[in-house]
């Protein structure tokens, strides 16, 4: 067992974990943060994407021990009092159907906009290529990221 200290969605956590425990399983099974789902075992689908120290990462491709000392934000902590503009835009643009890819897609989109506040359609599509969605055909996801970009630029004025 290894001792880790991680801040998850604003709450400091300390735990003893088996080295082989994946971060996503620690979040889901030990912390009960089941909002972050698992969709594959080859790091292709991106459903499990979370923020680690402000940057997106696939929590199925990381050991919990590797997250020691970091700050993690899951979909359950993405709203800070009020919804993040990406969440607002996803609802408004109907950018989700079954919702299984949504936690990872929202986190990936937040990361994308934090690095490129005004992305082109091509940049959005490239930037989300690590997150698979089987329901929406991505059309409305792209639209939502564009709308979120506008919302965030408005808010920054």
């Amino acid at each position: 067992m290894a001792r880790i200290a991680v801040t998850v969605d604003g709450t400091a956590r300390e735990a003893d974990v088996e080295p082989r425990t994946l971060l996503v399983h620690w979040l889901r099974d030990d912390l009960g943060l089941v909002g972050t789902p698992v969709g594959c075992d080859t790091s292709n689908c991106g459903s499990c994407t979370v923020m680690i120290d402000g940057r997106s990462a696939k929590s199925c491709s990381l050991l919990a021990v590797q997250a020691d000392g970091t700050q993690i934000t899951t979909i359950q902590g993405a709203a800070n009092g009020e919804w993040h503009p990406v969440q607002v835009a996803f609802k408004d643009c109907h950018a989700l159907q079954c919702g299984y890819c949504t936690p990872g897609m929202v986190v990936a989109a937040i990361d994308l906009l934090s690095e490129n506040p005004d992305p082109s359609e091509a940049e959005i599509r490239e930037g989300l290529r690590g997150n698979l969605c089987r329901c929406t055909g991505y059309h409305n996801i792209v639209k939502a990221v564009q709308q979120a970009s506008e919302l965030m630029k408005e808010a920054a004025k």
């Binding site: 089941v34 909002g35 789902p37 979909i75 359950q76 989700l96 299984y100």
Partner: peptide, 12 residues
């Protein structure tokens, strides 16, 4: 449906 799906308040 979206409020719960967008905030991780899901029950898979």
């Amino acid at each position: 449906e979206d409020a719960r799906l967008l905030t991780g308040q899901t029950q898979w």
